[in-house]
Computed example of a mutant assay.
Amino acid sequence: MQKFLFLFITTMGLATASASTVDTVAIYSPSMQKTIKCVIIKPNHYDDSTTRYPVAYLLHGYSGSYASWVETAPNLKEYADDHQMILVCPDGGYNSWYFDSPINPERKYETHVSKEVVSYVDDHYRTIPDRNHRAITGLSMGGHGAFYLGLRHPDIFGAIGSTSGGVDITPFKTNWEISEQIGDTINHKDNWKNMTIINMIDKYPTDDLSIIFDCGTDDFFYKVNKALHKKMLDMHIPHDYIERPGEHNGEYWKNSIEYQLLFFKNFFARNPDEK
C-alpha cells in the first residue's frame, strides 16, 4: 500500500510539473498609449527545455476580452500540450473588429495585435519567429479579425482561420457598433466596401496562405461564410471549409477550435524549423 501511494504521488507530481501553464501579461501599446492584457498558454515542458515553439493567435469576439477563449474552451491547455504550440489570446477591445480605425486614431487594434503583441511574444517567449510558424484565427468578430490581419500581413502569419466569422460585414450595417470603427455607410461607404473580408479576397495575395474557416448551419453568419467559400472556389483559392450543425455560441466554438488547431499543427509540421 505504501509503495502504491508513493508511486501515485510521484506520478501526480510529474503530471503537474509537465502541465501547460497560463500567463496573463500586460503589454504596453505605443500606438494606443495604454497597457493591454493578454493570455499566453505555454505547452508542457516549456520551462524545463530550450525548445522553440510555433504560435497560434486566437482572437475573441464582440464584447469579449483576452480571457474569453480560455473561458469558452478550457481544453486549450490540453491542445497546447498535444500540439506543442504556444497559444496567445490578445485583447481586441469590446468592439474594435481589429481595425486601425480610419475615423478614430485612438483605436489601433490591427497594429496592436499584428505588431505589438507579436513582437512582445517573440521577445519574451521561445517562439519560432517567422510566418511559417505563426497562425491566427478567431471567433465571430475575431474571425473577421483573423482574416483581416492575415490577409494584410502575410509576412507575419502563414496560416489563417475563422470560426463563425463575420467575413462580410456589409449586411450588418447597424450591428455591433461597426460604424463607430469605420464610419457610416454614406460618408464612408468605401470603408465598408474595402474593409470586409469577402471583398478583400480580390485584392490581397492568398497563394502563400493556408486557410481554414467554418460556420454552423444555424448561425446568423452562415450565409456570408458560405458565400465566401463559393467565391474562393470560383477564384481557385485553396482552403478548407467546414459547415456543421451549430449556432453562434460557445458550444460550437469549443468544438471548432480543436479542429482548427490540428490544421495549424499540420501547417507547422510542413515547415520545420531550420534554425
Rank of each mutant, 00 (worst) to 15 (best):
M1N: 07
M1W: 03
Q2M: 10
F4W: 09
F4R: 10
F8P: 13
F8R: 07
L14N: 10
A17M: 11
A17G: 00
A19H: 05
A19C: 02
T24I: 14
A26E: 13
Y28G: 07
P30H: 11
M32G: 05
Q33Y: 09
I36M: 08
H45A: 01
T51A: 05
Y53A: 07
A56N: 08
A56K: 11
L58N: 11
H60F: 03
A73L: 03
A73E: 08
N75Y: 15
L76H: 09
E78L: 04
A80K: 07
H83I: 03
Q84S: 13
Q84I: 00
C89D: 10
C89N: 13
N95G: 05
E110Q: 14
E110P: 04
E110A: 05
E116W: 12
S119P: 01
D122R: 07
H124N: 14
Y125R: 05
D130K: 15
N132S: 12
H133D: 06
R134D: 03
A135H: 10
A135W: 07
M141V: 09
M141S: 04
A146S: 14
F147H: 04
Y148S: 03
P154E: 07
I156H: 05
G158D: 01
I160C: 04
I160W: 03
G166C: 02
V167M: 08
K173E: 12
T174Y: 04
E177A: 05
S179A: 09
S179G: 01
S179Y: 04
E180A: 13
I186F: 11
N191Y: 10
I198H: 09
I198S: 05
I201P: 00
K203C: 08
Y204N: 12
P205C: 11
D207S: 14
D207H: 15
D208S: 15
C215N: 03
T217Q: 00
D219Y: 06
F220R: 03
N225C: 15
A227C: 12
L228K: 02
K231S: 09
M232I: 11
M232C: 08
D234S: 13
D234A: 15
P238K: 15
H239P: 02
E243Q: 10
R244I: 15
P245Q: 12
P245W: 12
E247F: 08
N249Q: 08
G250S: 08
E258K: 08
Y259I: 02
F268K: 07
A269T: 10
A269R: 09
P272L: 04
P272Q: 04
E274V: 08
